[in-house]
């Protein structure tokens, strides 16, 4: 049986995340953040710096820059043009429980821990075994590729008690990708309504959070947030499997109490 031996050939390839940080994280251009001490007032002078208007000055403190990761498609134009202001952020733990928490640098009033425990309380009953239903509401296909990788040996979410399920009636968690197209509105709502309580919704990818570069159009929305209530937002274009996994763990209140992996 050649395949049996082949299966043993490389030993264990599975990541130890979330118990241990994974070395792959810091090698990957997952997000943009501001360089510490960067000059203010940039927005007025730089037209076309961001194709999705993810960069804006703060409303309360004029001139203070913010990057909204819910809008950022990680194209890197700002980093290339203004490396004195913007930098690549190698963090892969990017998911958040509110749109406000995806704006960097964060608003000091925002209490992440409070938000996190709220979702955690609601899904407390699901902790050991969680079934996931994925719905594509108008993605470009790359998010599906990264979600599919979660079932492979490297990410292997079944080791964490998470399973993809065929029927929404067995599902605890709805994982939605895409801009929210007109043709998927009814299908998305039907899937959501077929799920038993308690249910959690995770929006996966910048397109699902804000429409990204695609929406809104006559046929596409500005994300799926108007269609179903979102519990966790996973930014990225597409988010890497680690970031999606971070979002799933955040939704279930199962992240270890530490910061990382860096």
């Amino acid at each position: 049986m050649p395949w049996v031996l082949r299966g043993l050939r490389d030993g264990i390839v599975t990541t130890r995340y979330p118990r241990r940080p994974d070395d792959y994280g810091p090698t990957f251009r997952a997000a943009v953040s501001l360089r510490p001490g960067s000059p203010a007032g940039l927005i007025d002078t730089e037209a076309g710096l961001c194709p999705t208007d993810a960069i804006r000055s703060g409303d309360e403190t004029p001139g203070a820059l913010r990057v909204d990761r819910a809008r950022c498609i990680v194209c890197g134009r700002c980093v290339a043009r203004r490396p004195d202001v913007f930098q690549w952020d190698p963090t892969v733990e990017l998911a958040a429980t509110s749109a406000g928490a995806l704006v960097v640098p964060p608003d000091p009033d925002l209490s992440l821990d409070a938000l996190r425990s709220e979702v955690g309380r609601r899904v407390g009953a699901l902790r050991r075994s969680v079934h996931i239903r994925h719905v594509d509401a108008g993605s470009d296909g790359s998010e599906e590729a990264e979600i599919a990788a979660l079932s492979g040996p490297i990410y292997d979410i079944e080791r964490l008690g998470m399973f993809f399920t065929a029927s929404p009636r067995h599902a605890d968690l709805l994982l939605v990708t895409g801009v929210g197209t007109a043709g998927m509105v009814d299908e998305l709502l039907r899937t959501y309504e077929a799920m038993p309580e308690p249910r959690v919704v995770v929006a996966c990818g910048t397109d699902a959070l804000s429409g990204g570069l695609v929406g809104p159009t006559y046929s596409a929305g500005d994300g799926v947030g108007r269609l179903v209530p979102l519990d966790v937002l996973v930014p990225g274009s597409p988010p890497s499997p680690f970031t999606i996994l971070h979002g799933l763990l955040l939704a279930l209140g199962r992240l270890p109490r530490r910061r990382g992996p860096r």
Partner: peptide
């Protein structure tokens, strides 16, 4: 048709550097 996003119309709203990203 379920995932028709209206991309052809979207393209014509963009300048060349953004259109390549789309």
């Amino acid at each position: 048709h379920h995932k028709h996003r209206g991309l052809e119309q979207r393209f014509s709203q963009l300048a060349v550097p953004d259109a390549v990203l789309l």
